[in-house]
């Protein structure tokens, strides 16, 4: 993997988060992992299917998940985000080239932290995480 987790967070004392990456393209997954670790957060796992994502979540209980919509084996990111939200109260950040696939009903049930369109500017992900940290400290 891409080196040791950063020992000090660049977010000026804000807590670092434990993140699950649900993405079936290995390059994109590794890049997301590198960016998240660069921000000072920890990555608890990479999952390429809905099944793997849900199992990993139950085992590792991440603080937040980055979820792609179209996953390997034809499973759907929406289903992952819904189980994470309803069963484990884990929020998701949806990242996809087809955000229009998420229906109003999906949105209401999943309540994603953010919907980011691929291709991502790294900065956009950084801002979402900064917001997630801030709201977490506030709780």
């Amino acid at each position: 993997m891409a080196g040791e987790p950063a020992s000090s967070s660049p977010n000026d004392g804000a807590p670092s988060l434990r993140v699950l990456i649900v993405e079936d393209n290995v390059f994109i997954a590794l890049d997301l992992e590198a960016q998240i670790m660069d921000m000072g957060h920890a990555v608890v796992g990479l999952a390429a299917t809905a099944k793997a994502a849900i199992e990993t979540s139950r085992r590792t209980r991440p603080d937040v998940a980055i979820v792609d919509l179209q996953l390997a084996d034809g499973s759907r990111g929406q289903d992952v985000a819904l189980v994470l939200r309803e069963e484990m109260q884990i929020p998701s950040i949806i990242v996809s080239g087809s955000l229009h696939q998420v229906t109003e009903a999906d949105m209401a049930a999943i309540r994603p932290l953010a919907m980011l369109s691929k291709p991502l500017f790294p900065e956009e992900l950084r801002q979402v995480f900064a917001g997630a940290c801030a709201s977490r400290s506030a709780v």
Binding site: N25, L30, D31, A34, S98, H100, K118, P119
Partner: peptide
């Protein structure tokens, strides 16, 4: 929509590869 999705995903993959190469 399908072509658009693939193009976006492929571009994301290209930037991801470049990101990874640059950071290493």
């Amino acid at each position: 929509a399908e072509v658009n999705h693939r193009v976006k995903n492929s571009l994301q993959m290209v930037t991801s590869i470049l990101n990874l190469e640059a950071s290493r």
